[in-house]
Nucleic acid binder design. Sequence first.
DNA 1: GCCAACGTTGGC
DNA 2: GCCAACGTTGGC
Length: 139
Amino acid sequence: MAHWLYKSEPDTFSFQDLVAKGEAGQEWDGVRNYQARNHMRAMKVGDRGFFYHSNEGKEIVGVVEVVKEIHPDSTDDSGTWECVDIRAVGPVKTPVTLVAAKAESRLKGMALVSNSRLSVQPVTDAEWDIVCEMAGISP
DNA sequence: GCCAACGTTGGC
DNA sequence: GCCAACGTTGGC
């Protein structure tokens, strides 16, 4: 099972906002980046991911899960963009800050560290385990 | 609030 | 098809 990381500015849409959406989750719309879209195309129902707060907090705050695979983005009239639906699984025990991730040498290659601008990122199994360990949760 | 990095756009 | 200009993102 593949793992992912979703970035969002908490001012716009926070992890708490996703929690409030409940089991049905939320369309991850508004992504206008081909790389990010391609990652979403590769997602399967049940794939887990981290939820990262950019700008405010700059930390991984929760775990999410894909509940609906790739489909047209309802906010895009051109038909170019697609997205998945995700729901909140639960908060992490200890948020993992960007500073902490950068300080962890085993996470040097992580997209969050090396290409922070990408809004939907793949996370390797090894990275997943390390971040879970840092976050105080089971993988 | 600044600025570096990156992606996209459009002229040639 | 190249590349300069521009806009956006996000860390600091």
